[in-house]
């Protein structure tokens, strides 16, 4: 029971906070590798799969509320998908150890900038009807 209960709870918690805009797709990944001891490549694969239903569920609600900017999606998505194919191909070929340092730098940059931005004045953070 424990083998699936802890992952289920971790999934639910990270799914919820990432729907709030906190977590950015790296939270579960870090929970898996640093806390639960899942190996790097498996964790990356699970993290990718994980995002699909979570994002689809969140997107369904956001779209109904009319929050999607279609021109931005049309511009960014094809480029993103092409680069993702290349990145994923590389990631599944090289030794995961090779990507550890670049990932560390990405995390340090991300953590620092998230922290800095959280202290900057926000422009109408909780506008609308909530």
């Amino acid at each position: 029971m424990k083998e699936w209960l802890i992952p289920l709870l971790c999934g639910a918690l990270t799914g919820m906070v990432s729907a709030w805009g906190v977590g950015g797709g790296t939270l579960l990944l870090l929970v898996m590798t640093l806390v639960l001891g899942v190996d790097q490549r498996t964790a990356q694969g699970i993290n990718l799969l994980f995002f699909l239903p979570t994002a689809a569920a969140a997107l369904f609600v956001h779209r109904k509320n009319g929050f999607l900017d279609r021109p931005t999606v049309r511009q960014a998505a094809p480029w993103g998908a092409a680069a993702a194919a290349a990145g994923a191909w590389i990631a599944t070929f090289v030794d995961p150890a090779v990507l550890k340092k670049p990932f560390a730098l990405f995390l340090l940059y991300t953590g620092a900038s998230t922290l800095v931005r959280s202290f900057l004045p926000q422009k109408e953070k909780k506008s609308g009807s909530g």
């Binding site: 699936w4 289920l8 799914g15 990432s18 729907a19 699970i46 239903p53 979570t54 994002a55």
Partner: peptide, 24 residues
């Protein structure tokens, strides 16, 4: 490329969908 064990992923996905709906 065979890098994702689906059985291991399943509980995360179920939890994630529930959390995503609640969070949304």
């Amino acid at each position: 490329r065979g890098s994702v064990p689906l059985a291991a992923a399943a509980p995360y996905l179920v939890g994630g969908a529930l959390g995503g709906i609640l969070g949304g």
